[in-house]
């Protein structure tokens, strides 16, 4: 009888996360010679966004890859550090955290919730979009901006003078089309695959924030797996992570190019100086949210990426 790991996620099979899950399944089943069977359930087939965390805790599924914003409601607000605008200046900065000791330390905080974090998977850096050009922070004043549920993103939009509007992902396209909300933020892959660029006149390549996932497992379940098999699985996960990050980066680049090529929305690329104006306004969120996230943790992240503040 093989050990069955139910791996549930909420996106389509052909997204970077979906492909990485399939890749992990392949590696894990090969390397354990069939001692482990991974059943991947994509597209929220079994559990939806709002259910999967509880489903993992009570053992209905064994493995998930939720977005990092999902950990704050679980009670580990430290993960909100990833949502802070302009905390990473690119993939190099990001990987110093996600592949380094600070990232590891954060994952360890999940243990008290009965969860083990195995790896971080990237999606990408976000762009802003709206029906008016967003060149300076002042352009956001009074705009209704869709966000996913997150106190940090809420604060980010408020600092910009916009009205944050929490809305389910499935509703966003129509809300943008009809004008219930004026704009949103997304990594290019979502902007393109959800066709949101068709209903947004301007896209600003701001790379202001990061969207990523963590692969997590039920702690009790994982610790019952024999050590040698667990080591093989961890190896497979490490390789799947490299794969996940590289296809995510590639996909975002391709999709940004496709959005540009479509001509349906005008692409605004910020100059160094313009980006600095955004950054100067938005770093205020770091200090505003320091009490929630932990000032020490924010400092640790600064140090890990080599920023002196």
């Amino acid at each position: 009888e093989p050990i069955v790991i139910k791996f549930s996620h909420v996106v389509a099979v052909d997204t970077p996360k979906g492909q990485a899950a399939e890749y992990f399944k392949k590696l894990a089943e090969e390397r354990t010679n069939g001692a482990v069977k991974i059943e991947v359930y994509p597209n929220s087939q079994l559990y939806k966004d709002k259910e999967e965390m509880e489903a993992l805790q009570i053992g209905s599924v064994q493995m998930l890859a939720p977005s990092l914003a999902k950990f704050a409601p679980l009670g580990v607000k430290e993960f909100e550090v990833f949502d802070l605008p302009f905390i990473f200046d690119g993939y190099d900065d990001l990987h110093k955290v996600t592949l380094g000791p600070v990232g590891k330390k954060l994952l360890n905080k999940l243990e008290v919730k009965g969860i083990l974090g195995l790896a971080y998977w990237d999606n990408g850096f976000k762009v802003m979009s709206a029906n008016k050009p967003l060149k300076t922070p002042a352009d956001f004043k009074g705009l209704k901006m869709r966000i996913q549920s997150s106190k940090i993103l809420d604060a980010q939009m408020r600092v910009l003078g916009a009205i944050p509007q929490v809305m389910a992902f499935s509703e966003v396209y129509q809300a943008l089309q009809t004008g219930v909300v004026d704009g949103t933020e997304n990594p290019p892959s979502n902007l393109y695959t959800q066709k949101m660029f068709e209903v947004q006149k301007y896209v600003t390549v701001s790379n202001h924030g990061f969207l990523g996932y963590a692969v997590i497992v039920n702690k009790k379940f994982w610790e019952k797996i024999p050590v040698e098999i667990r080591t093989q699985l961890e190896g497979a996960m490490a390789d799947a992570t490299v794969f996940a990050n590289s296809i995510a980066k590639q996909k975002n680049q391709e999709d940004l190019a496709s959005v540009k090529a479509s001509g349906k929305s005008e692409m605004i690329v910020l100059s160094e100086q313009e980006r600095k104006v955004w950054k100067d306004v938005l770093v205020k969120v770091h200090t505003d949210m320091a009490d929630r996230i932990g000032a020490d943790l924010i400092q640790e992240v600064y140090q890990a990426i080599g920023v002196k503040k």
Binding site: K50, E51, A55, I58, G59, S60
Partner: peptide
């Protein structure tokens, strides 16, 4: 082998949708 507790959860989350 589906854990039966998920039934209770689904009875809540099944309608946890603004639509």
């Amino acid at each position: 082998t589906v854990p039966i507790e998920s039934v209770a959860m689904k009875l809540f989350t099944g309608i946890e949708k603004f639509e």
